[in-house]
Design a protein around this nucleic acid. Sequence first.
DNA 1: CAGGTGAATAATGTGCACATTAATTGGAAT
DNA 2: ATTCCAATTAATGTGCACATTATTCACCTG
Lengths: 238, 238
Amino acid sequence: MSEKRQRGAKADPAADEAVYQAITRAIMDGRLKAGTKLVEQTLAEAFGVSRERIRKVLHRLGAERRIEIVPNRGSRVPSPSPQEIRAVYEAHRVLEAGVLVQLAHILTDDILARLDAHLLEEKAAAARGDRAASVRLSGAFHMHLVDALENEELSRFLRDLLSRSSVMVSVYEPAADSACAVDEHGAIVEALRARDVAQAIHLSRHHFQHVEQRLRLDRPQGPAPDLRALFSPEALAD
Amino acid sequence: MSEKRQRGAKADPAADEAVYQAITRAIMDGRLKAGTKLVEQTLAEAFGVSRERIRKVLHRLGAERRIEIVPNRGSRVPSPSPQEIRAVYEAHRVLEAGVLVQLAHILTDDILARLDAHLLEEKAAAARGDRAASVRLSGAFHMHLVDALENEELSRFLRDLLSRSSVMVSVYEPAADSACAVDEHGAIVEALRARDVAQAIHLSRHHFQHVEQRLRLDRPQGPAPDLRALFSPEALAD
DNA sequence: CAGGTGAATAATGTGCACATTAATTGGAAT
DNA sequence: ATTCCAATTAATGTGCACATTATTCACCTG
């Protein structure tokens, strides 16, 4: 007998997750550019799964705001407007202010030690000029701050925000050096160590202001959608 | 001819939304108690729609954390543990601290006027002993604070948190009077008017502490799930 | 030749039939 | 009587066939 599937066959239960992860990574890595249309049939053939499965994954991604779904018109990678980008960064800034307030109340030496360890990592990555690692660790710093509160709700919210801003940097190519970010991160930790909440918030706000200014929001609008046929099936499956 | 549906018939496009709203409301109003199992076939018959439609709505609700879905084992209304409840309230508290920081930067007389107007509404509801309205307006106050920032990300996050905490109060019946809440809300607005951020945060934190303490987290655990057959189809459809 | 209208094509939405897995019940053996 | 196992039942998961809607394109008309 061949591997032919029966009617209601139940294939790999982890297949959903695999497809979900693949598309998510493709979006976050910028391999799927903003505005690209995600055609169900094409994706189904690319992954070698049924269209229904793709469909389910797409709806999940839509619910998580990772893609845009317009009824009867399909799904596509969102191309956020400058306004939406500002909103995400502002949300991040507002959340971190609240996190810092709470962190000051439950701060332990253990938490500070972990933050210090992370800063060393960041500094090392910056020193050896590893840009990819720098970007990743820069986001991880803020995740560390939230994770210190050990609150799944808050961690999830920040994770969502970070995943969305990572899409944005792939649209509006940021100017390179995030070296200064390390120092700013360190300053925030120092303010925390001194239990100076107001100062920590102040530094955090300025930090975000710098990051936001680094984006090229001036001549954005339509980054030439270039949609359709830009995503190769084998590149997706990798 | 009858109203019999064809094979791939496309019924009311708003049917999804109707089912979604109905279930959401039923959960938030406490008509669907925590732990109740949501059987697809039963719901399909209750709403008079196909099981696939129910299925889609259920998955959407699951993605929004409004219900719990265990693969191959179905969906149910979550019965949050005391730990999860604390997490939600803490998240709310942390978010509001950040909101107050940002609000202090962009505060206008117009915003203050709207908050004052809301306080009057709350006071009126409390004065006439309308408990349902009081609870609703109490949540609305915090929504107003976030909405003043005009940031959809933050508003959505708080909306999620509120919808989850509303489920919780239906589990752990709170002691009645939320009268003092009005005064505490008013105090926060006054601190804002005086541009005293630290004081506003301080008051907000204490406010949440009061609300959280009002819940009966002492002898909770299993509120006697009582699942199956407690939800009447006609009560759902209302 | 421009602009719009229709048919043809492509892509999305949905009900249904069945597979699969969990829950339940009945019975036999110790 | 209790425990364990098999068979039945119930509920969830999935592929497929089609309907419906959007898009494209060719053709006709002014």
